[in-house]
Amino acid sequence: MTLLLAASTPLTWLLEPISHGFMLRALLVSALVGGVCGLLSCYMTLKGWALMGDAVSHAVMPGVVVAYALGLPFAVGAFVFGVGSVAVIGFVKQKSRVKEDTVIGLVFTGFFALGLVLISKIRSNIDLTHILFGNVLGISDSDITDTLVICAIVLAVLLVLRRDLMLFCFDPTHARSIGINTGLLHYLLLSVLSLAAVAGLQTVGIILVVAMLITPGATAYLLTDRFDRMTLLAVASSVFSSAGGVYVSYWTDSSTAGCIVLVQTFLFLLAFFFAPRHGIFRQHQS
């Protein structure tokens, strides 16, 4: 690697990886999924749904396994189990005295465990490590098609309803009082979250997908006080992290998922320290 770096110019650093077909595909898929998850992450962080994102992304696992076993697109299974887990969380919370964060932890680990057992019992060619840690370098054509469809759906919902969802996060009481169906928005946002979790599962896997769903939003939140700018910054930082992570993983020959999330975390730390208004160095100066 040192030899390669020494022998090449910055242009070849960028061009050599994508001369391989699988790298180009990985780069494009990661960037697309990153952008979509980045946009969604704004709503997750502002609504305070980080834990919910973690729960849903883990809970989709049995759905993915069942869908594979039945020959359905994995998005269908993930969607059913993602939304189902939230319904179960809501039901248990309402009917018992157990606190919400406990219920969330309890339900998603239960679903996740069910997924583990199903993988070991159902005969299939699913590789557990691919689900857990992603396999964007070896992504199949049919998975790419599914991911494209999922991203298109999520993007369409988020773009058409972006004002309503913003208002729903900011002041649901006002939203309801002017006749906006907040119950529908709630479940729509959860459905979109389930779908995005499946898309993110392709690139970084179940364990790290929650990073895709919150870190870009958190980074952007530190950089601006305007919602529109926040969404742009979140998408930009997420796309950059995904693409950058794929490059870093190529040149260091290390885990793609790990690299993508590490770049995201690095960007967050930059914002945390140096953000113009909300960074900690700025706060100390003023």
Binding site: L46, R163, M166, T173, H174, S177, G179, T224, D225, F227
Partner: peptide, 29 residues
Amino acid sequence: AVAYVPQSDGVDCAFPVSVWDVVMMGRYG
């Protein structure tokens, strides 16, 4: 026809919206 004016601590004050954005929310309906 009905507008609700929340208590000061009824909304998230760290939400990234400007005064103009908040007032514009009255027009969404």
